[in-house]
Design a protein around this nucleic acid. Structure first.
Length: 475
RNA sequence: GCUCCCUUCGUCUAUCGGAAAGGACGCCAGGUUUUCAACCUGGAAAGACGGGUUCGACUCCCGUAGGGAGCGCCA
């Protein structure tokens, strides 16, 4: 039977980068084994779940390229089925009503903590007569868990992990208002969805032991567990807002490409020998549970950037050019240097970007950098000259440009080689190094001190625009 | 406090009892060069600590330290 896995996030904000990796691992496993990848939204907490957050999950998964099978299951819609299961457990004597008030429980925990005891429900209503209940208390329904023995989780990543029965208390299955708890809902849903492998964060490892009790009580087949390590911030602490971007779509805004994210996230906690860069197809082919490590990994932005740069360089040039053109207009919101500016694309923008894209791609680690570097060729209107370029355009440099313009005007074949030859000849005649001429040219042509090669730029701009930009700064 | 998990260069990792402990990012140096990159070459850099087991431990066991997770009528 082909495996069926699921990604089961709770919709409480953006799709977190850690959750995204969990989704990726599940997706990879399904792809690798020819199984199915399902999506279930754990929205049973009505107060925290919003439709915007659900949409954010869809958006994040789509951007990452992780397609799920069929429609997402909304856990909140399955409450009747969850109650039905609890009724069955009640009937079988595997669950019971507990009439403790919140105050009772609080007091119990306080005493346990004070006495250095583990904080667990003590099972006081296990065999007590409901007639003893205080009036007005709506009972919760608790699982009647075994009090002796141990629960074994044969985890595919963590190995065999044992929990003594004394560690596990009688957890709540149904709340006082009749709504199901998470612990109950996951098990029922995973069972009903025929989930064969549960791949999720280690923060659920302890839960697995509790959930196992429900599988056992219902006589259900227990899925294979694989609890993967968490991602920490660069400082080793839990990944949080102060570490920067957390939601996957924030990475899109920062200019990271989905294929780079997939590669980076896969490498975080999973390895295939010494391989560092692998396509999604290769990852699918290689991915397997035994390759997953057990220790938490720190998020390393430098490495992500490096990978992203690699994928920018190796992207299909035509596709990349299209993406750049689409991103340039977003620059005011993505790059502080363009904040507040009005963006208008030049009629020749597409053509220029297409010819310059291989050169541009080598100089960018993210799509925003790429768009920013493309701006001098993509934008309409007067060319802005930044401070460093301005500093380069000293009077002597402007005079040099003045002597260069007629030389270039005389070039018939507007090509890199011909232009190169012409400029070199001029440089030699003036006993200058090529760089002495190239830098002022660059400043005049792009308004910046770094750019693709000046001859490539001249070709991309075309004779008229190229000469016009030089003339504008010449004297 | 109790339970569970983790620990190889700064970071991500390879190693599955016998190697000079390998790769990648980052860093440093050099080469190439019209800038910046890209690219090429070289370099510094690691088995937390203490005990065992073994002819032999990074690898297996125990302990210590450090880190993480869980202990809800949250998910």
């Amino acid at each position: 039977m082909a495996p069926i896995v699921r990604f089961a996030p709770s919709p409480t904000g953006d799709l977190h980068i850690g959750s995204a990796r969990t989704a990726l691992f599940n997706w990879l496993y399904a792809k690798h084994t020819g199984g199915q990848f399902l999506l279930r939204i754990e929205d049973t907490d009505a107060e925290r779940s919003t439709t915007a957050a659900i949409d954010a999950i869809y958006e994040g998964l789509r951007w990452l390229g992780l397609a799920w099978h069929g429609d997402a299951v909304l856990q909140s819609k399955r409450a009747p089925r969850h109650r039905e299961v609890v009724e069955a457990m009640l009937a079988a004597g595997n669950a019971y009503r507990c009439y403790c008030s919140p105050a009772d429980l609080e007091e119990m925990r306080a005493q346990q903590k004070a006495g250095g005891l583990p904080m667990r429900y003590d099972g006081r209503w296990r065999d007590r007569d409901p007639a003893d209940a205080q009036a007005g208390v709506k009972p919760v329904i608790r699982l009647k868990a075994p009090r002796t023995g141990e629960t074994l989780i044969a985890d595919q990543v963590q190995g065999d992990v044992r929990f003594a029965a004394e560690q596990l208390d009688d957890m709540v299955l149904l709340r006082g208002d009749g709504s199901p708890t998470y612990m109950l809902a996951v098990v029922v849903d995973d069972h009903d969805m025929d989930i064969t492998h549960i791949i999720r964060g280690v923060d659920h490892l302890n839960n697995a032991a509790r959930q196992m009790q429900i599988y056992l009580a219902m006589g259900w087949r227990v899925p294979v567990f694989a609890h993967i390590p968490l991602i920490h911030g660069p400082d080793g602490a839990k990944l949080s807002k102060r570490h920067g971007a957390q939601g996957v779509m924030e990475y899109e805004k920062l200019g990271y490409r989905p294929e780079a994210m997939r590669n980076y996230l896969a490498k975080l906690g999973w390895a295939h020998g010494d391989d560092e860069i692998f396509s999604t197809d290769q990852t699918i082919q290689w991915f397997d549970l035994p390759g997953i490590g057990r220790s938490a990994a720190r998020f390393d932005y430098d490495k992500l950037r490096s990978l992203n740069g690699h994928y920018i360089q190796s992207a299909d040039p035509a596709q990349l050019a299209t993406e750049v053109l689409a991103r340039v207009p977003r620059l005011p919101e993505l790059d502080p240097a363009f904040a507040g500016q009005t963006i208008a694309l030049h009629p020749q923008a597409a053509a220029r970007i297409r010819t310059l894209i291989p050169d541009l791609a080598k100089r960018a680690k993210d799509m925003n950098e790429l768009a920013s570097n493309a701006a001098p060729f993509a934008l309409a209107g007067p060319l802005p000259v930044d401070a460093k370029a301005e500093a380069l355009l000293k009077p002597e440099a402007r005079a040099l440009l003045g002597r260069l313009v007629p030389v270039l005007s005389a070039v018939n074949d507007w090509s890199v080689t011909a232009l190169d030859a012409a400029v070199r000849t001029l440089a030699e005649a003036e006993s200058l190094k090529l760089g002495d001429v190239a830098q002022p040219m660059r400043a005049a042509l792009t308004g910046r001190t770094t750019s693709p090669g000046v001859f490539e730029v001249l070709v991309a701009l075309g004779r008229n625009e190229g000469l016009a930009r030089l003339r504008a700064q010449a004297r």
